[in-house]
Amino acid sequence: MYPAQFRYSEEHEWLQVEDNSATVGITDHAQKELGDVVFVELPKVGDKVEAGQACGTVESVKAVSEIYSPVSGEVKEVNTALAETPEWINQDPHGKAWMMKVALSAPAPLDRLMTAEQYEEYLRKESAE
């Protein structure tokens, strides 16, 4: 379910680091919690994002959820197709519905992020509560 090459945040974002760049999206769990996504607001190319800070929003019919950047850096690319097809976030959250690519200004805080295995354990604990 959760790709092993990704890292995961407690706010349910996923992250794939390649060299000095990271691709960010929201997890399958996050999209399920939201329900049918109807709108996303993403940062603009060139915006600076900071680890742990809100950088956008995802909306379903009756809920709004902030997107927290798991890393710090400058936004290099955003998935503009999501504006027209927000349903991809429900259909393929870990693939087609990536949200932004960030050029890292500092190494990704891997110690604060989870592996797929840890994230699944985290979800189990969260649902048990």
Binding site: F39, E59, S60, V61, K62, A63, V64
Partner: peptide
């Protein structure tokens, strides 16, 4: 577009 409104946001 109720997410703009007070009962949600």
């Amino acid at each position: 577009l109720a997410t703009r409104e007070q009962h949600i946001r």
